[in-house]
Amino acid sequence: MSSAERVSPSTPGNSGVAGDDDHKVPPVAEMARLIGLSIPAACMPDVLKNTALLQGYADLLGGFALPDDCEPAYEYEP
């Protein structure tokens, strides 16, 4: 396993979100509007932080190529 794989993306849980990955932060206000969610201003910093955290994990996961016949595990049996 490479060290790049071992390190969690953007140090999950860190209070700081800023850094080189800032450009990856999704347009939170637009995304919220699409699902009918109004984010109070007081909550926005925390939502931005958590959205960036999830984006880091999504990038990590998206960097792995799965075969086309690998189906989602919606009906999962351990």
Binding site: P26, V28, M31, A32, I35, L37, I39, C43, D46, V47, K49, N50, T51, L53, L54, A58, L61, G62, F64, L66, P67, C70, E71, P72, A73, Y74, Y76, P78
Partner: peptide
């Protein structure tokens, strides 16, 4: 609150990929 709000907005493509990865990891 912030974690749930961020999760509610997660794109479908990411969610589906995670469930596909689950199948692979199994």
């Amino acid at each position: 609150r912030g974690r749930l709000m961020a999760g509610a907005m997660l794109p479908a493509a990411t969610f589906v990929q995670a469930h596909r990865f689950r199948r692979w990891f199994r």
